[in-house]
Simulated scan of single mutants.
Amino acid sequence: MEEKKYIFISRKIEDAIRRNEFGGKLPGLGRLAEIYESNPRTVSKALRLLEEKGKVTVNGTRGTYVSGINQRPRFRVIGLIGMRSTPGYRNQLETIQNIAAKEHYRVIALSDSSDLDGLLRENSEFLVNFPADGFIFAYSSITENIAATLRGAGIPFVAMNYVPDIPGVNWAAFSSERGLERILKELTALGHRRIALVEFNNHNYGYSEKMYRLYRDFLSSLNSFDERYYYSHYTMQEHYMKHGENSYREFAREIVEYIAALKTRPSAVIFMNAGNSTIINAYELFRMTGIRSPEDISITGDFDMRDKCEISGLLYDYSLRASEAAKIMMKLLKYPDTPLIQKTLVQKWHPGRTVRSVNHCEKNIVERKRK
């Protein structure tokens, strides 16, 4: 009997909305219960039914609002864009799925591929027509055009990376620029001046250009900048298409060969956004070529917390980032009028065993040459 009544009440409320009896905001549960001669519990079920149909938006203690004329239906689905199919990324996907499931949402992941990237760039309306209530974007997959299209359609979205140059983007991310500055300060405090920076080329949001400028300006202020110590020749996708599953090891091999061939080698090398496997492989390959770390060269960078090992550097807890992005999405779905949320997460420094003072490295190299 109660089930039939809440359906009946939902139809009555929908008729009242159509006649514009409530304006933009519905009366409270108590008042609606009086109007329809029922109880708050039954009225609440009726409102949830209307919310699923996209007729109203229930904003918790703030009240229930009439949805816009062009309001999309509720699918109880979140679209995840740009996630790659590797173990580390699957952990992030599971984190998002667990948080979404608590609010009865499912997650559909559209993997990162050149086909998807091209489709979104050519037709941003694809996402407007996709059966999802909101989108989470991973790994620089959001563009200014996509952001503008989703905002115009009233569809909430969150980026899992730092997006300072696109207006109106909610994000939860680590700042690579702050991370690089932190590492440079750690190394220069130990006396290092000949510092190499290695990264995959990434033109999204001018990322590589910003990292290069920060690196150049920081070392130039110490009269220590050397163009030869900067290596960023390929995008991650270009390198993967060329080398496949061996991409990270091949990139590490290129770096080691390049640095080993320099007449004056750097005393430290930073791997930024180059992948966990790159920095670990480089560490091993340096040793195979007779360049030991930290005895001959300090190795550091940024990497996923899963692969702490003995490398010194900044730890990125990507599951934390995924969790924060999912929480922001849940809030946006529940409270559409939520102000912009931009959360910068802090990396932790892991001392490891691959960084030492420059005096120690230089002394070790001199002693080895004498032998």
Rank of each mutant, 00 (worst) to 15 (best):
Q347F: 12
P336R: 03
C361P: 01
I13V: 11
E3K: 15
E37D: 15
I78M: 10
E3G: 03
A16I: 06
E227C: 08
Y6N: 09
L116V: 13
R19V: 06
N170T: 06
A33N: 10
D112S: 13
Q97M: 12
D217C: 11
V366R: 05
G179H: 02
K45V: 08
S221I: 08
R41W: 05
R292W: 09
V346I: 15
L150R: 01
S221A: 14
N223S: 14
M236Q: 09
V358H: 03
L214P: 03
S298G: 03
K343W: 03
D296A: 08
S267E: 15
R72V: 10
S220D: 14
A100H: 00
K25Y: 10
V346D: 09
L49I: 08
S175R: 03
V128M: 01
A46H: 06
S114Y: 10
Q342D: 06
R321P: 03
V366P: 02
Y229R: 04
A268H: 08
G244Q: 10
V355Q: 00
H360S: 10
V58S: 04
N91G: 13
Y36T: 12
A159E: 04
V56Q: 02
I255H: 02
A132N: 02
M272T: 07
F135A: 02
R193L: 14
Q347I: 03
S293H: 06
S113D: 06
Y6R: 07
A147G: 00
P339N: 08
M288C: 08
K331H: 12
